[in-house]
């Protein structure tokens, strides 16, 4: 009898999986297969004549030689932004979890609040803030922190600032979730056992918040590496990221190369993430 029950339970499980499974097959698996096959189109083809799949890897070779600069730049910008997010986000999440008291919910709302406005509009408003004739640049020039003809907008600094700003909540929220879960008595026990606050933090709080830190860095780094809006709106010709390249290739009709770059980006990120997660020893998170 328990056998039938189990079997029925199993069946229900599959039925429940069906809608989402069908959805993902239609809108993720099929496009992914098409994407990969497009990346192997023979570049000799054209729209008029059609493309043939000849199993060549010429598309990969040519995009890697043409766009390795933008590739490395994307990874560099994403890593920098992620690091800054950790430096800004950890203290913030810590303060919300342990020190905010009755302000906690308000502060959480404040972290989320920017999402009530469109991503594009938020990034566009950075154009106004960092504008050459704006007060930020004027102030920095007055303080001689920025040269007379220096600028912020259309520089790498602006791009990384934009990415950091846009992805900060993705760092703060998982960090907060794991910090908030820590039993305060563990920290008390640390000081009862004569550990300095720093030692307590290093040996108790930090390891316990590690899952949040890992999740936060992934949620920040992965979308940041593929982002193209910040580079487009806040960057210049020499700060273009791999997302911009893919978008331009797609726009210009070079679908096979755009596909090859997309597949490469995906593969590189999967490899980086796997290596990182393995290293962090938290496989159960992924």
């Amino acid at each position: 009898m328990s056998d039938t029950e189990e079997r029925r339970g199993g069946l229900v499980g599959y039925v429940l999986l069906l809608p989402a499974g069908a959805w993902l097959t239609l809108f993720f698996v099929v496009p992914l297969v098409t994407l990969v096959s497009t990346s192997f189109y023979d570049p000799a083809g054209s729209l008029e004549l059609g493309y043939r799949v000849t199993g060549q890897v010429t598309n990969y070779a040519s995009v890697l030689s043409d766009y390795s600069e933008q590739f490395l730049r994307s990874l560099g910008y994403a890593a920098t932004a992620t690091l800054v997010c950790v430096l800004l986000g950890y203290p913030l999440a810590y303060a919300i979890a342990f020190k905010a008291g009755r302000w906690r919910n308000l502060m959480l709302v404040a972290v989320i609040a920017p999402f009530f406005t469109s991503f594009l509009i938020r990034t566009l408003s950075w154009q106004l803030i960092l504008a050459d004739q704006g007060w930020v640049v004027d102030t920095l020039q007055f303080l001689h922190l920025l040269g007379e003809d220096g600028r912020l907008l259309a520089t790498p600094v602006a791009v990384v600032t934009g990415i950091t700003y846009n992805f900060l909540p993705f760092m703060v929220l998982p960090l907060y979730a794991s910090l908030e879960k820590i039993d305060p008595r563990l920290i008390e026990a640390g000081s009862d056992l004569y550990a300095s606050p720093f030692t307590t933090f290093r040996t108790v709080t930090l390891p316990l918040s590690l899952p949040g830190l890992v999740a936060g860095t992934l949620l920040t780094f992965i979308p940041a590496a593929g982002d193209y809006i910040n580079a487009q709106l806040l960057g210049n010709t020499r700060t273009q990221m791999i997302g911009n390249v893919i978008q331009k290739l797609f726009d210009g009709g070079s679908y096979p190369e755009a596909a090859a770059l997309s597949v490469t980006l995906m593969a590189v990120i999967v490899v980086l993430v796997l290596a990182y997660v393995r290293r962090a020893g938290t496989e159960d998170l992924v």
Partner: peptide, 30 residues
């Protein structure tokens, strides 16, 4: 990134005249 992928996935879907057919290349469009 997920919606970015979704977007490029849509693009790819548009490329092939219907899903898996694209695995064998595309027809001419003249």
């Amino acid at each position: 990134r997920r919606s970015f992928l979704r977007a490029s996935g849509f693009g790819a879907l548009v490329l092939g005249s219907g899903g898996l057919l694209a695995a064998c290349g595309t027809e001419g469009t003249q």
